[in-house]
Design a protein around this nucleic acid. Sequence first.
DNA 1: CCCACTTGTGGACATCGTACACATGGGCAG
DNA 2: CTGCCCATGTGTACGATGTCCACAAGTGGG
Lengths: 224, 224
Amino acid sequence: MDVHVGGVMAAESGRAKRTTYRHGDLRNALVEAGLELAREGGPEAVVLRAATRQAGVVPNAAYRHFADRGALLHAVSQAAMARLARTMEAEQAEQAALPPAPDAAAAARARFRAVGTGYLRFAQEEPGLFRTAFHVPGDMTYAADATAAGGSGKTPFELLGAALDGLVENGLLPEDRRPGAEFLAWSAVHGLAALLVDGPLRGLLPSQAHDAGQHVIDMIERGI
Amino acid sequence: MDVHVGGVMAAESGRAKRTTYRHGDLRNALVEAGLELAREGGPEAVVLRAATRQAGVVPNAAYRHFADRGALLHAVSQAAMARLARTMEAEQAEQAALPPAPDAAAAARARFRAVGTGYLRFAQEEPGLFRTAFHVPGDMTYAADATAAGGSGKTPFELLGAALDGLVENGLLPEDRRPGAEFLAWSAVHGLAALLVDGPLRGLLPSQAHDAGQHVIDMIERGI
DNA sequence: CCCACTTGTGGACATCGTACACATGGGCAG
DNA sequence: CTGCCCATGTGTACGATGTCCACAAGTGGG
């Protein structure tokens, strides 16, 4: 998993000094720095020179690993998407552990709701990363990219699909309603997330936001 | 309505030369130029120097009318929001003119659906302006701002609220479901718009996008 | 008629992305 | 073990952007 890393010494400011000429893991270091920048400030805060500075390297060194700033931003975006996937998975695990032993249908329903709840939680807790994850430059089918997957190897989109399949298997969703259902559910949840992150619902208290999320998921269950 | 405008002469490139020392309507000219930039390229394409260039003025002149680039972008964003409102109003007018003479309930329902359809049409036809309209810097309650209103004096958010009131008046929506309903509807439609504009649904054919929109609005009517 | 206030100009600076030539040294061929 | 190659990091430079400051030019009110 881990790569050979050149000796690194902390320095005065954010800059990292290193003893070896080679960095050893620059690409990862740049993505990591980019994530930190994106966390506070969103995609536009992912500045190439700032990332290289934090990695203790000259700006141009980035070009050995990324074609341009856009490529770096894209890598950061994928990493942010992976974090979203992990948050969703964590929410599912948490929900599954809570109630003693519900029937299979209730479990499938809980898994479905956890997908949306986790999505919304990530949007609130990490608005910068959320916006970065969905900052799509040019044309893209990122949802299928493995670099956007979480611990289970599934991307956010795939997690949603699996949860919907679970609803069908347990008779909670008619089979003829299944096709295209991910886009209905995703639209509603993503829309609320957008309104919470940088729309008129920004600044809602976490509890209020949670309630709003449950309402939206209620609507999805009724209307899907 | 129109202000005194200094004589303006077309020049070689996008630059506009003028005969008078004063421009006469720089603020509007800058917003107009900003809209053009935003149309192709979204919010990040609203570059202060480019806007002043198109207005035939030196970059610093913008600072007589806007505190900084952010203020200009905000004005452009409000203007884009107003255009969204106009598109929604146009969609409502068109729908109202189509069928011969439906009953009041059907009309209310059509008005409601037109809100969403117009919203989605604008997102597809003017993705750059759509993204700019929802590019909200800092904290903001733009939905209530009059500069974001369309021809009827209503902002997009207010148009939605009025349509929902219409549903209640005609018994199509239980009164106890009314509170907060705008956020449910808005979330779903806005989410689809986001997926269409720069998400995985980008590049959908207009007809496919229209169908997806109708499906989402169906879901809202069922689940609201 | 004249002066003050608004609006546009000119020049300067820090920062950013990026191109091109050059330095370095790690690892593989022999 | 030795020497060279090329991946990786450095230096220098350029154009573009946002923004600051001092200055110029009209314009309209007294």
